[in-house]
Design a protein around this nucleic acid. Structure first.
Lengths: 168, 168
DNA sequence: AATATATAATAAGGGCACCTGATTATATTG
DNA sequence: CAATATAATCAGGTGCCCTTATTATATATT
């Protein structure tokens, strides 16, 4: 079937892109490294969307265990990017707050346009956005079906990032 | 500038896709997990392209340290996916060889079309392949400029994967 | 109020992908 | 043959994650 081959080709290209992008940042140095959407970076991202969340909230929202969340928060505290304050309402909970440095960190690492995207024309840029949008929408649906508490949160988290760019 | 905004949007969507795909496999279970293109998976992939390479060759080709290579190979040996044989020409070198299980592992984990791609029509599939092709080509150029010994090898490595699919 | 149970966070320990700095064989070369 | 280069390994470390206790603090039940 011709369409099966098309799909396999697209899947292969997508896999290739993913793999390449893993090594791209290592090898092709940027002035400012991209904000990593893992671990500590995830926490920062979530806080930039909504500050003063409890670790429990962060964990649930980001789909990582509370233990890992605690670890990342601890590391961020050491880097002076967040502070912890005990909630007065519930002495069990630690609220995680962005410091000015933390906010700056997010700002300075704001999504830059990677150099390799310059290879596309305006029209192609539009096409790519639209295709990726269909793909991510489908992914959110699958993720949501598998774990209803997660998908929407992520969407919101990412959406807030583009919005910030448009405001400027 | 309008085109700058288009580029930022595309960059954001790409980042979103990357992040989502990281958690997709965890949450949306597949019968067969995708062959991971990291660590042990990288080694297998390189061997499927060309068997009986020395660890040194693998390390250079994959852009990872010889020490890490040794570690991954060791783990693959424990999983019976590769064997080590001393080169008769140079007793220092260990040749890494795929076992039948190893070959099967690669085969069975061959790139399946992820469910979320089904959201695209044939035409869109073509568009996506073509766009990604432009992007990866640009990435290879950047990578090659930064580290001339690496890019082409990677390209060959990935290219061999699609080709296999077309043969069927 | 007193006990039982639920919940937030931490501690402890483990796995995987990498890395750097020795160290040990084995080659090659002057 | 001594000096140097090279393949691989050992030891130890970082970052991202996880699971299984354990410790406080809350809330519910009797």
């Amino acid at each position: 079937m011709a369409n099966e081959i098309k799909a396999e080709l697209a899947a292969g290209k997508l896999a290739e892109y993913e793999q390449l992008s893993k090594i791209y940042d290592d090898i092709v140095k940027h002035a400012k490294p991209r904000l990593t959407v893992e671990g500590q970076g995830k926490i920062l991202l979530a806080l930039s969307d909504e500050d003063h969340q409890s670790q429990r909230e962060l964990a649930t929202r980001l789909g990582i265990s509370p233990q890992s969340t605690s670890e990342f928060v601890y590391k961020l505290v050491k880097r002076n990017l967040v502070t912890l304050t005990k909630s007065p309402k519930d002495k069990r909970v630690n609220l995680v707050n962005l410091t000015n440095e933390g906010r700056q960190e997010i700002e300075s690492a704001a999504q830059e346009v990677p150099p390799f995207l310059k290879a596309l024309s305006d029209t192609e840029m539009d096409q790519l956005s639209s295709l990726l949008n269909k793909i991510t929408t489908a992914m959110y649906e699958d993720i949501d079906a598998a774990n209803p508490t997660l998908g929407v949160k992520f969407h919101k988290l990412f959406a807030s990032r583009y919005l910030k760019q448009f405001k400027k």
